[in-house]
Design a binder for these strands. Structure first.
Lengths: 106, 106
DNA sequence: TGGTATACATCGTAACGCGAAGTATATCGC
DNA sequence: GCGATATACTTCGCGTTACGATGTATACCA
């Protein structure tokens, strides 16, 4: 898929991946894979950005000797998803503009 | 609208604006305005990029003493729009992932 | 004469995705 | 026992891109 197109979906998609249940990096990538593939470097950059923006909180948990960072969505993060839904209406209108048939033949 | 979301639509949208009839910068901005607003600097950057990529061709025409650059879509440009349509299927699937109801309550 | 519309161009900046490389542990096949 | 693979997170640098600011130039209207 076109990278530019992907960009606009990434933040909302990551937030959606943790919205029902706290999750961690590796798991998020696996959950998103059927819909949208992203590299680790991309995900961790996004998670850091969303944390800074107050969209999620982080909690480190010991798991089999290793550190695991669990991400929890905040009210702001849920709001971000709602914003995406609002934007979606505009996107659909743009989609119709792009895919419309030749206006001269209508 | 979210800038990142806009990014993925811009190229296809500009191509769609000239696909039925050759057009020029100022006119393209006006045609797109109801759907997607963009600044002149952004549009001319995009047009230059699409030209380099072979998606459109340019023809300078004298108009009331001033130079006007008409843009004409190529077969490649039309192909780019078709690609967008293909990507759209994936985007819809991602949209459903983002807006799905809590899986634990289903 | 000043404001607005038309029309295109260039520069610098900041945001962002991502490949590459690194660190570290656990598990599994040979 | 040892290499491969999976898990898990981090950092760096690069290239692409949208856009504000600014500039140039003409036409028209009040």
């Amino acid at each position: 898929m076109d990278i530019q197109l992907k960009r606009g979906l990434l933040d909302a998609c990551v937030l959606a991946a943790i919205k029902d249940e706290d999750s961690y990096g590796y798991q998020i990538i696996k959950d998103m894979k059927p819909y949208l593939e992203l590299s680790e470097s991309t995900l961790y950059t996004i998670l850091k950005r969303l944390e800074t923006a107050g969209m999620l909180t982080v909690k480190s948990v010991e798991h089999e000797g290793r550190l695991r960072k669990y991400y929890h969505i905040t009210r702001q993060g849920l709001g971000r998803i709602e914003e995406f839904k609002e934007d979606w209406k505009e996107i659909e209108s743009i989609y119709r503009f792009i895919t419309r048939e030749d206006a001269r033949n209508e």
